[in-house]
């Protein structure tokens, strides 16, 4: 018999007072801060464009999860691969794809990253080894076995970052993927972005043992849990996992975070309290990073304002580009379905 689990507010476990240690240059830190701010701005504007019907379909934002995005993706090297899921606008931007091509995709235009065929859930940039966003929960996970295997097979020093949500960890595909990644000692780092809710279902309602990072051991991986609202903590955990991956040890990282908005634009998130959302907003990853940097005299208010202004400009330019970009030609409906199909045959 299934009893409904009594819900309590899911409060953040803060590492706010952890002294931030910075080994990075000021420029590098500012770049991380800027990328987080850019993603926030991009999502704000994207949401607005959605409500103005410039964007259709589903629309899942990274609001509140910016530290998990930037902390895991920015340390990667150009040769490393990323396999992501459907909440991936920030992921592709953090990887360096120009936001104007991302926005154009959301607008369904020809010069979008998937030429208007993919949309919000299916962003892609092969040149940056960003192997896509996927719309079936956990369905992207088995792909990472093959990407990791391929690096090893080709004898290349490449790491694969597999991003997934905690909801996917209840699906069978996650088990097959993690078991095989562990079994073959593949250079794959699996990051579970645990935002506590799979749509409206809490992790306590979907996981027999909600401490997902502990599954690492069972798959022969290094398991770690990290405060996903602290970009530097995520970054350190990721850098450690990268060292392990290069030595043939995969990792399973659980990054504790929170999405400020509903599951998608269509979700008003009535299943959680205002107090709960507020308690997480107080841990806002961008504000926290700013406080850390500020305390260490690594950023001034003027510098922050300049960054904010510059990302606003960049996102506005992205919207302008997307809005004026051409729609795909309906005559190209069947383009890309097959590579070199045989002539004169019904496909």
């Amino acid at each position: 018999m299934v009893k409904e689990i009594e819900r309590t507010e899911l409060e953040p476990t803060s590492t706010e007072n952890r002294p931030a240690e910075f080994h990075e240059s000021k420029e590098e830190l500012h770049s991380l801060f800027r990328t987080m701010s850019l993603i926030r701005r991009f999502e704000d504007t994207g949401w607005e464009m959605y409500t103005r019907a410039k964007i259709g379909g589903y629309f899942h934002t990274n609001h509140g999860e910016e530290a998990t995005v930037v902390g895991t993706i920015c340390p990667l090297r150009p040769q490393d691969w990323i396999v992501s899921f459907y909440r991936e606008h920030g992921h592709i931007i953090a990887r360096g794809t120009d936001p104007k091509y991302v926005m154009a995709e959301l607008f369904g235009r020809e010069h979008g990253v998937a030429h208007g065929r993919g949309g919000s859930m299916h962003l892609f940039d092969y040149s940056r080894h960003f192997l896509g966003g996927y719309g079936i929960v956990a369905g992207q996970m088995p792909l990472a076995i093959g990407v990791g295997w391929s690096s090893k097979y080709r004898g290349q020093d490449e790491i694969t970052l597999l991003l997934t949500g905690e909801g996917a960890m209840a699906n069978g595909a996650s088990h097959e993927a993690l078991n095989m990644i562990g079994l073959y000692h593949l250079p794959v780092i699996t990051v579970v972005v645990n935002n506590l809710y799979g749509m409206g279902t809490t992790v306590h309602e979907s996981a027999a043992n909600p401490e997902i990072w502990k599954r690492g051991e069972m798959y022969g991986m290094h398991g770690a849990q990290v405060d996903g609202m602290d970009v530097m903590a995520v970054r350190r955990t990721m850098q450690d996992a990268m060292k392990r991956a290069s030595n043939g040890q995969p990792s399973l990282i659980e990054a504790m975070t929170y999405r400020y908005r509903g599951h998608s634009v269509a979700d008003a998130a009535r299943y959680r309290s205002t107090e709960e959302v507020q308690s997480w907003r107080q841990q806002d990853p961008i504000e926290r990073f700013y406080r850390q940097l500020s305390k260490a005299d690594l950023i001034t208010e003027e510098e922050r304002n300049a960054i904010d202004e510059s990302v606003e400009k960049q996102v506005n330019a992205a919207v302008e580009f997307a809005d004026s970009d051409e729609h795909p030609d309906p005559n190209g409906l069947f383009d890309h379905l097959y590579v070199d199909p045989p002539a004169g045959v019904s496909l």
Binding site: W81, V83, L131, I145, G146, V147, Y153, A173, N179, M180
Partner: peptide, 25 residues
């Protein structure tokens, strides 16, 4: 390595094949 015996994991096998195919194999 070129004749890989896998676990009983059909999602794993076909997902692995797809990921490997996307990256040059």
């Amino acid at each position: 390595e070129r004749v890989l015996s896998t676990p009983i994991a059909e999602s794993g096998i076909m997902g692995m094949a797809t990921g490997a195919a996307m990256t040059g194999l």
